[in-house]
Simulated assay, not measured.
Amino acid sequence: MPYEPPTHTVERSLRATTGARTVAGVDEVGRGAWAGPVTVCAAVTGLRRPPAGLTDSKLLTAKRRDALLPVLQDWVTAYGLGHSTPEEIDALGMTAALRLAAERALNALPVRPDAVILDGKHDYLGAPWKVRTVIKGDQSCIAVAAASVIAKVSRDAMMAELESSADGCAPYAFAANAGYPSPVHQAALAEHGPTAHHRLSWSYLDGLPQWRHLKKHRPSAEAAALESGGQLGFDF
Rank of each mutant, 00 (worst) to 15 (best):
A170C: 07
G36N: 15
D74R: 14
I142P: 01
T18R: 15
V153F: 04
P37V: 14
A190K: 11
S154K: 00
P86C: 05
K216D: 05
H213R: 11
P209N: 08
A224H: 03
T7V: 07
L208M: 13
H197W: 12
L125G: 11
L162W: 15
P5D: 06
L106C: 01
L59A: 11
A20W: 11
A102Y: 08
W202L: 14
A157W: 01
A33H: 10
A115K: 01
L162P: 00
A16V: 05
S220N: 03
L109S: 06
A175L: 01
A151G: 06
C141Q: 10
R64S: 07
R12W: 03
L106D: 01
H185G: 07
R155N: 04
S57D: 12
S148L: 09
S13M: 05
A160E: 02
A166P: 01
P110K: 12
V134Q: 11
M94F: 14
P128F: 09
R65K: 03
G82M: 09
A16F: 03
S182D: 02
Q231D: 13
A160S: 09
P51S: 12
L205N: 08
G193F: 07
G137L: 02
P5H: 03
A43L: 06
E11N: 05
V23W: 09
L92R: 15
V131F: 13
G80S: 08
M158C: 02
L189V: 05
I142L: 02
P50V: 07
Y180G: 06
L100K: 14
P5F: 00
H192C: 06
V23Y: 09
S140Q: 11
D90R: 14
R212I: 00
A127Q: 08
I150Y: 10
R155D: 07
G19D: 11
G19H: 11
H192Y: 12
R21W: 04
K216I: 10
D114C: 03
M158E: 10
R49N: 08
V153R: 05
M159S: 04
G30W: 07
V26W: 12
A101C: 07
A157D: 11
A196I: 00
F174L: 13
V76D: 05
M158S: 02
A20Q: 12
G207M: 14
A33N: 12
P194T: 08
R49S: 14
W211I: 03
E87W: 02
G30V: 08
I135Y: 10
L226A: 12
G30Q: 09
V134E: 14
H197V: 00
H217V: 01
Y3G: 03
V44D: 09
V10T: 13
E191G: 02
V40G: 11
S182V: 04
K58S: 15
E191I: 00
Y79R: 02
A105G: 08
M158V: 04
A143F: 00
P171W: 02
L92Y: 15
Q73C: 10
H213G: 12
L59Y: 05
Y3I: 02
A151W: 08
N107I: 00
M159P: 02
A221L: 04
A52E: 14
R12C: 06
V71E: 15
G120M: 08
S165Q: 15
P110D: 15
N107R: 10
S165R: 14
S140M: 09
L118Y: 13
V134N: 05
A143T: 02
S57H: 08
G229T: 01
G36W: 14
V111N: 12
